[in-house]
Measured scan of single mutants.
Amino acid sequence: NITNLCPFDEVFNATRFASVYAWNRKRISNCVADYSVLYNFAPFFAFKCYGVSPTKLNDLCFTNVYADSFVIRGNEVSQIAPGQTGNIADYNYKLPDDFTGCVIAWNSNKLDSKVGGNYNYLYRLFRKSNLKPFERDISTEIYQAGNKPCNGVAGFNCYFPLRSYGFRPTYGVGHQPYRVVVLSFELLHAPATVCGPKKST
């Protein structure tokens, strides 16, 4: 009989979020998941679920829940969905086509923008091939755009693969920082350890 609540607040209220190319993952297990707390949290810009209804989450049990978190621009949030393409979905964070879970995003301009620009948040701009679902690539190898080998030196046709967002408070909404948490639900042939409040007695 599990009684402790799942530590969703640790994920959602973290002081610093990860850059999207180096997205953070927390495994959540052996706890009671009260999703209504999240669902009623006012400032969400997006709360979209795939393969599961957000209002039914509290009735369900899962083997594991993974909480992935990172920061992207407002106009990139739409790429955090199954079957998407674009710089983020291709080179930074890719969801599987059969994704079961929820994508939760909110504007973090007050936290993550600075006058003069916040350059701490990076994304991958160049990559030889697209990421596989949930693949994480933190390499900083110089990207070779031409035929000539770069030998690890940036220059003509040789690019550092990461780019900084440089968030400023005055940017338009599409270019403002958004914090994103992706909850993915794993249902294995194993005992369920993460259940909603109704199922955990």
Rank of each mutant, 00 (worst) to 15 (best):
residue 85 T to Y: 07
residue 39 Y to K: 15
residue 72 I to L: 13
residue 112 D to S: 03
residue 137 D to V: 04
residue 189 H to S: 14
residue 199 K to H: 14
residue 81 A to S: 08
residue 16 R to E: 14
residue 157 N to Q: 02
residue 123 Y to A: 15
residue 70 F to N: 00
residue 176 Q to K: 04
residue 83 G to P: 01
residue 30 N to P: 07
residue 134 F to K: 06
residue 128 K to N: 11
residue 4 N to F: 09
residue 12 F to W: 05
residue 33 A to P: 12
residue 133 P to F: 07
residue 19 S to E: 02
residue 111 L to G: 09
residue 152 G to F: 08
residue 47 F to H: 09
residue 86 G to H: 03
residue 30 N to H: 11
residue 12 F to M: 12
residue 48 K to W: 05
residue 101 G to P: 00
residue 186 E to A: 08
residue 96 P to V: 04
residue 56 K to N: 13
residue 97 D to W: 10
residue 4 N to D: 13
residue 187 L to R: 13
residue 122 L to A: 11
residue 139 S to Y: 07
residue 186 E to L: 07
residue 69 S to Y: 07
residue 98 D to L: 09
residue 108 S to H: 01
residue 146 G to M: 02
residue 185 F to V: 07
residue 101 G to C: 01
residue 55 T to P: 09
residue 184 S to Y: 10
residue 162 L to G: 01
residue 118 N to L: 04
residue 129 S to R: 13
residue 143 Y to C: 03
residue 93 Y to D: 00
residue 76 E to Q: 12
residue 84 Q to C: 08
residue 142 I to E: 03
residue 187 L to S: 15
residue 130 N to I: 14
residue 3 T to M: 10
residue 35 Y to H: 08
residue 147 N to D: 07
residue 133 P to I: 04
residue 96 P to F: 02
residue 28 I to L: 14
residue 112 D to I: 04
residue 83 G to Y: 10
residue 73 R to V: 03
residue 72 I to H: 01
residue 10 E to C: 08
residue 191 P to R: 14
residue 195 C to Y: 11
residue 168 R to G: 00
residue 14 A to Q: 14
residue 85 T to A: 10
residue 109 N to C: 05
residue 117 G to E: 02
residue 55 T to Q: 13
residue 70 F to I: 01
residue 163 R to C: 15
residue 154 A to M: 09
residue 49 C to G: 01
residue 132 K to E: 12
residue 59 D to S: 14
residue 57 L to I: 08
residue 9 D to T: 14
residue 127 R to E: 00
residue 153 V to P: 06
residue 134 F to C: 06
residue 36 S to Q: 13
residue 18 A to H: 10
residue 145 A to D: 00
residue 77 V to D: 00
residue 144 Q to H: 06
residue 2 I to K: 13
residue 21 Y to A: 06
residue 80 I to M: 05
residue 70 F to E: 00
residue 118 N to F: 04
residue 117 G to C: 02
residue 115 V to P: 12
residue 19 S to K: 04
residue 107 N to S: 07
residue 194 V to W: 10
residue 26 K to C: 08
residue 85 T to C: 08
residue 71 V to E: 00
residue 38 L to G: 04
residue 34 D to E: 08
residue 63 T to R: 13
residue 191 P to E: 14
residue 98 D to A: 10
residue 6 C to T: 06
residue 52 V to G: 04
residue 18 A to C: 08
residue 47 F to D: 03
residue 71 V to N: 02
residue 92 N to M: 02
residue 40 N to Y: 08
residue 124 R to S: 00
residue 168 R to A: 05
residue 185 F to G: 05
residue 138 I to F: 08
residue 28 I to N: 03
residue 89 A to P: 07
residue 91 Y to P: 01
residue 94 K to R: 09
residue 9 D to M: 15
residue 180 V to E: 00
residue 72 I to G: 01
residue 164 S to Q: 07
residue 33 A to W: 14
residue 28 I to K: 03
residue 154 A to N: 11
residue 68 D to T: 04
residue 152 G to Y: 07
residue 192 A to I: 12
residue 158 C to I: 02
residue 138 I to D: 12
residue 37 V to K: 15
residue 55 T to G: 14
residue 159 Y to W: 04
residue 32 V to F: 10
residue 46 A to P: 08
residue 137 D to E: 05
residue 146 G to W: 05
residue 66 Y to K: 06
residue 87 N to H: 15
residue 125 L to H: 05
residue 10 E to H: 08
residue 160 F to G: 10
residue 47 F to V: 12
residue 3 T to Y: 09
residue 110 K to S: 11
residue 22 A to C: 09
residue 152 G to T: 08
residue 43 P to L: 06
residue 186 E to H: 11
residue 161 P to E: 03
residue 67 A to E: 03
residue 60 L to K: 13
residue 50 Y to C: 01
residue 116 G to W: 06
residue 108 S to L: 01
residue 87 N to Q: 12
residue 19 S to H: 06
residue 169 P to S: 06
residue 176 Q to H: 04
residue 69 S to C: 05
residue 83 G to E: 08
residue 149 P to V: 09
residue 92 N to G: 03
residue 74 G to V: 01
residue 78 S to I: 07
residue 148 K to T: 13
residue 159 Y to H: 03
residue 110 K to Y: 08
residue 18 A to R: 07
residue 157 N to I: 03
residue 51 G to Y: 05
residue 190 A to S: 14
residue 23 W to P: 04
residue 149 P to C: 08
residue 173 V to D: 11
residue 125 L to I: 07
residue 80 I to P: 01
residue 67 A to L: 13
residue 144 Q to R: 10
residue 116 G to V: 09
residue 155 G to R: 06
residue 139 S to A: 11
residue 141 E to R: 09
residue 186 E to W: 11
